[in-house]
Computed example of a mutant assay.
Amino acid sequence: MTMKLILQGPGADMATLNRLAALAAPAGTRELSRHALRCDSVQADAATRQAVEAAALAARIDATFIASATTLADFGLLAMDMDSTLITIECIDEIADMQGLKPQVAAITEAAMRGEIGFADSLRRRVALLAGLSADALQRVYEERLQLSPGAETLLAAVKAANIQTLLVSGGFTFFTDHLRARLGLDYSNANTLEIVDGKLTGHVAGAIVDAEAKRDTVKLVCDELAIHPSQAIVMGDGANDLQMMSIAGLSVAFRAKPVVRQQADVALNFSGLDGLLHVLA
């Protein structure tokens, strides 16, 4: 199988990209932008890949080896995690900050994303700490702290232009996925519902928890509805609870992800924005 190598990074210069490209002995190269280079018919043996990836990491450049023929047109669904993927924050950590409990909640979040604590248990523990908080805190987090990750809108525009459906599937909360779905014109979403009584959070999640298995099953269900195979889905995530849905996808993308996720993903975007995926599939 003929492989291409995509080298890219927001601060990359073409001289550095060409130096890295030479390690893979490409048959030819093409500039995709001022900060991205496509290398065709590269050597892709284990030793070469390791050398390129190590040098690229040291230079803060993303290096992706992928089948040359793979393009955006091969896919029918883009499924994305929300917290720390589509958006830059972990919403529950910011909600907890309204209670003065961000360090405690963030520590549990980090352990869960590294795969050290089961996600469902970690979510229950974190949500319990929010009991009694005014539901107005959710709107404050959305308005004051939530920001899209770099390249999000560019990626979504290109995906929509290619008639690819979009799914936001999150272990976070429907308050935020519903707002983002409407704001960004996303096609599908699934997340957890915070229980609210008399305008205050109860410290409980209403209904079943959207954990790793539920995320995977959501991707499968949407693929079934679209009459496509999961191999025609791109799945993007950053934490351990994304691995199951990433494992069934045709292309898995780790975005600013934990090591356990980067190691298992087809594509790792450590420095580029979400729109770096467009260069990978160019």
Rank of each mutant, 00 (worst) to 15 (best):
L7N: 11
G9S: 05
P10A: 08
N18M: 13
A21V: 01
A22H: 09
L23M: 06
A27F: 14
R30W: 12
E31M: 14
A36I: 09
C39R: 11
S41P: 04
T48N: 06
E53F: 04
L57Q: 11
R60L: 15
I61Y: 00
I61N: 00
T64C: 10
T64D: 01
F65T: 04
I66V: 12
A67F: 15
A69M: 10
L77I: 08
M80C: 08
M82A: 07
D93L: 08
P103Y: 12
G115S: 14
S122L: 15
L129F: 07
L133P: 01
L133G: 02
L146G: 02
L155C: 03
V159R: 00
V159I: 15
K160D: 01
K160T: 08
A161N: 15
Q165G: 06
L168P: 03
V169G: 00
G171P: 11
F173H: 06
T174Y: 13
F175S: 02
R181V: 14
G185Q: 13
Y188V: 04
S189G: 15
D198L: 03
K200H: 15
G203K: 01
G207H: 08
I209K: 09
E213R: 15
D217C: 10
V222Q: 02
C223T: 09
L226C: 13
V235T: 08
V235Y: 00
M246D: 01
G250F: 01
V261Q: 00
A265V: 06
S272G: 05
G273Q: 06
